[in-house]
Design a binder for these strands. Structure first.
Ligand SMILES: NC(=O)c1ccc[n+]([C@@H]2O[C@H](COP(=O)([O-])OP(=O)(O)OC[C@H]3O[C@@H](n4cnc5c(N)ncnc54)[C@H](O)[C@@H]3O)[C@@H](O)[C@H]2O)c1
Ligand SMILES: NC(=O)c1ccc[n+]([C@@H]2O[C@H](COP(=O)([O-])OP(=O)(O)OC[C@H]3O[C@@H](n4cnc5c(N)ncnc54)[C@H](O)[C@@H]3O)[C@@H](O)[C@H]2O)c1
Lengths: 205, 205
DNA sequence: CGTCTGTTGAGAAATATTTCACAATTTGAT
DNA sequence: ATCAAATTGTGAAATATTTCTCAACAGACG
């Protein structure tokens, strides 16, 4: 299989959401690349090219079957099974993420949270118990989550990443504004909540 | 001035952070494109090209003055003045954002929050008072924030955007997983907290 | 002063991504 | 069965972005 451009992977996630909205709103069985492009604010050609990397899903003259396409995208994105995740740093942002039902809807289940503040340890947020950081390794080895979410202050991000890697997670999502280094076998993605504010400021100026 | 590639603008924000870290950690007066590239996980050539779009800031043989470069980046990103913002949707995510000191450090000050839940109206989160949505227009017209942050459920995102645009904000940062439409004069940026999880899932698969 | 070193700035080349454009295909109507 | 309309999939062209390269330059040092 050809190498897929990263922009394509990012758009796939948008298409999924647009398809779900489209289905909920119109209940039509087919959608054209034109329509999907309009919903995703994209050119129709790139929609077709993106989808064609993974096979021929469309019906000339009709478009794409909404249900089939949704299934295909979930399969491509590896989202048809449950993913376990742990979270390090049960502060303001960590709490928001722990309480977010959207993760479970996507198949992500947070199975443990860790914090080094003794006042937080032992409490629960939603379904998720907060453990001391000293329990991170044993809990991860026991529950085998593939994902680690980092929501500690920037200064502690690298240290948290090290712990997660050593304990055996395979992917890290870092919400702290810090560049962390992980071994090449680990999938690392950064989420920067303030970057888009800065970028908007640039375009306003 | 030439048109600046969007990836360049995004990286500028990374360079700023890396420079601040570099300054705090080494206190050296100069940094080379090589070093900055290493910190930002980038090729040195692209660092130089990014910076050269905006003028010649470097000293051959030495590198870039850390302080000068930081000032330049802040000026380029329009971040040397205070920006006022309002937030719509004082739920889990909204609360986390309202309590985040990082915004103020960047010069963003949230001057009001709005929610349609009567139990939330009248309370304060940190310094920020929560108003009913019916007061959005008058408060925005009075306080003239340039930025509107949307942290309502996806189904209410478009409606919130409409209110913000009508009240006169010039930029919208949408944290809800929904595509919203705004007039072309408005700067719209989307922040998707779950996308990177999905993308990581793709690369794990 | 001349030479050596390290580094920039930017043109050229390479690579990546998006858009165009159209033959091929399916549908649905007559 | 034939045809018009709609829409796909994809090569080719266009555009955008990144990387390579190196002449030019500043500073250090003898
Ligand atoms: N809150 C936001 O809206 C927001 C916005 C943008 C970025 N961020 C980033 O997200 C991260 C978390 O932000 P927050 O607002 O939740 O901060 P916070 O201070 O509320 O929470 C951080 C949590 O991490 C815990 N912690 C600290 N060091 C730790 C360690 N070594 N191991 C385990 N736990 C540790 C703290 O006890 C605390 O509970 C920060 O890096 C912040 O910059 C947050
Ligand atoms: N919490 C997270 O970690 C997280 C993660 C990813 C995405 N998001 C997205 O961010 C948004 C907010 O998430 P949340 O967890 O804070 O949800 P939430 O339900 O906790 O908060 C939403 C808030 O918006 C208010 N609200 C609803 N309709 C409104 C309207 N029309 N006008 C004004 N206020 C209104 C509600 O009263 C509530 O206070 C959602 O779109 C969610 O999908 C959140």
């Amino acid at each position: 299989m050809r190498k897929i451009p990263e922009p394509t992977v990012l758009r796939l996630s948008t298409y999924r959401r647009c398809l779900e909205d489209f289905k909920a709103q119109t209940n039509l069985p087919f959608v054209s690349s034109n329509e999907l492009g309009r919903l995703a604010h994209r050119n129709a050609a790139i929609v077709r090219k993106d989808l064609s990397y993974f096979g021929e899903y469309g019906v000339p003259g009709k478009g794409y079957s909404v249900d089939h396409l949704l299934k295909h995208i979930l399969r491509i994105m590896n989202l048809r099974r449950e993913h376990r995740a742990v979270l390090v740093g049960a502060g303001n942002l960590g709490r928001a993420l722990l309480g977010y039902p959207g993760f479970k809807k996507l198949g992500f289940r947070v199975v443990a949270a860790f914090d080094n503040d003794p006042r937080k340890v032992g409490r629960k947020i939603g379904e998720v118990a907060i453990f001391p950081v000293s329990k991170l390794k044993s809990e991860v080895e026991r529950k085998k989550p593939a994902f680690g979410l980092i929501t500690v202050p920037a200064a502690a991000a690298q240290e948290s990443a090290n712990l997660l890697v050593e304990a055996g997670v395979r992917a890290i999502i870092n919400f702290a504004p810090a560049r962390v280094w992980v071994p090449p076998r680990i999938v690392l993605r950064n989420v920067d909540l303030t970057r888009e504010l800065e970028v908007a400021s640039y375009y306003l100026g």
